[in-house]
Each structure stands twice: as structure tokens, then as C-alpha cells.
Amino acid sequence: MTTEHFVAGMRRQVGWFVMIGLGTIVALLLVATLRTELFARKFTLFVAPPSATSFFVGQEVKFQGFTIGRVDDIELQASGEVRIALRLLDRYRGMLHQGSAVRLVKPALLGQDIVEVTAGDVQTAVLNDGVLLPYREQATLEQLLMDMKPAVANADTLLGELVQLARWLNDPSGDVRLATANIRTVTEGADQGAIQQAITRVSEAAAQLEKLFRQLADNKAGEFLASSLEQTALVLKNLEPLTGELSRQAPETISRSKELVSRLEELSGALNSIAVDMQQLSPELPGLAQESHDAILELRRLATALRQTWLAGGKGESGKGPREDGEGTGTELVAPPGGGGQ
């Protein structure tokens, strides 16, 4: 009797143990399925990018920064076309309209790409199940760097010219030193103080740029840019000795100096474009890029001021008006016609 009682007790305990274990497993499964939206209603969209690189099964699909589904399947079709299936939660379908597109977004310089779906034209109908969405190329770091190349090349050419001009002006045995007669008369009308002050400020801006480019190189971001633009600071530094020469110049020298200042302004314009590009390039260095951009803007402003106070007087920055190279057309801020069928 005692043995039977003991066995019955053991059976009860084992039963309870099994029941509680199974219950826990079921509860865990329930929580997991709820959290992973396993049984939520879903719909499928397709996209055909030029390459499956950067895509993988299970990759998050986001809309406005929220995860709305995952990459379900990737296959290479018989025609050679890549077809990717996106399994998305049905409750978000109302937010996706005709004109919606898929693109890969890089959240930071490092890290996995995220598949993002755009909303499309909200005035049109919502997307149906099984629709093939267009794939949009997102400007990648590499593409942005490639885009910057023409501007950098332009800056390099200008820098080369500036080096030659600066050397010619600073040559102790050159015309600058030798031609001292009638110099005062030629430069009498000039605002010497303003010119010297402007050149000093240009030199200060150049020193700031030099520091920033060194920082860029230290951070290994945009390294080739840093090495390319490092010259800038050196060239601009060469302008400093000119301050003392300005009151002792011959007419030819003055005309060369005017050319130099004009090229300087052009250079600062090219650098400005590069600085704007750099803001896009270095997400981990937004402060640095902004500083660099500001320094270059300041340089450009100073170069313009320098031209304005120059001997023969130059035109100021025209802003929205026509360009300075002859009769301008005045549409420099308007996107040009052509492209995309227009």
C-alpha cells in the first residue's frame, strides 16, 4: 500500500513536471511567434536589381526607418535576371502606392545595407500582392568619390597654375625684384591696407585648411582627397610673401597678380564644390566636413573681396545675377534641360 502510494505520488509529480515543461515551451513559442510576426498576414513584392550582391535572405526591409518585412527569396532566373522576393507585413500595405521603389541604403560608412521601400505617389492606388517594383540605385560612397573626381582634377590643374604664378612672383632674381622704377606711381590708387589685410586673412584661412586636411588624412577618410588638397594650403601660403611686394610692383607684375587672384577665386569655387561633396562622403566626420566647408566658403569670400579691392577693381560676386564671363544667361541655379526624356 505504501509502495503503491509512493508510485502514485511519483506519477503525479512527473506528470506535473511534464505539464509545466510543455506549458513553458508552448508559452515561449507563442511569445516568439508573436514577436517575429510568424502568423501575421503578409504579402509579397518582387524587385529585379542588376545584381544580387548586398542582398541576403532574411535581410530587413524598412519603410520610413521601420522594419516591415524581410527578404524571403533570391533567385537567378533562366533569362539571367535576378529576382528578389520581399515578404512584407500586410498591415503596411496601405502605405505603399504606385510609383513605390526599392533601394539599398547604407546606414553608416560601415555596416550592412538595408533594403528600403519608398511610399510612391500617395494619390494613387495601393500596391497589389506580387507586384514587381523598380530598383533605384543609391549613390554609394564609391560612386560619390567617382563623382568628385572631375572637381578634384579641376582643382589640381588650377593648383599647378597657381604654383607657377606664385613662384614667378616670389623669384628674387625675377622681374618683381628688378623692376622697381615707377612702382609707387602705378600702385598709388590702390587700397594697399585692404589688400594686405585680405591676403593675411587668406593665409589664415589657408592655415586652417591645412589643419583640416591633415585631420582628414589622420582619419583615413577621403585619403586621396586629403593628399590632393594638401597642396592648396602650401600654395596659398606662398601668397603671403606677396604682401610685402605689392607696393613695389611693375605693371606687368600687377597684371600677373590680378590673374593670380582671379585663378585663386576660381580655385576656391572648385574647392567649394569638393567641400560640399565631402559633406556627403564623411558621415562619421560631419563636424569636420562642415568646418572644412565653412573654411572654403570663407576663402572664396575673401578672394572675392580681394578682387574687389584690387588695383583695377573687379566685379563682386554676382549671386543670382548673370555670370561674369561676358553676357551671362543667368540660370546657374536652375537644373539644365535634358536627361530623362525631357
Binding site: A139, Q143, V276, V334
Partner: peptide
Amino acid sequence: AESLARSGVDAMEREKWGFARVMFER
């Protein structure tokens, strides 16, 4: 804004539509 618009126009001339889009957005 004007400087960024100029960069966008320049990118359009170079047929860099994605880059131009980023510039015009900025």
C-alpha cells in the same frame, strides 16, 4: 542653399542623377 544647388546643377551636367538628387535635397 545656392552653393548646393550649383553643385546639383553641375552633377546634372555630368549626368550624375543620384548625386544631383542628394545635392538638390540638401
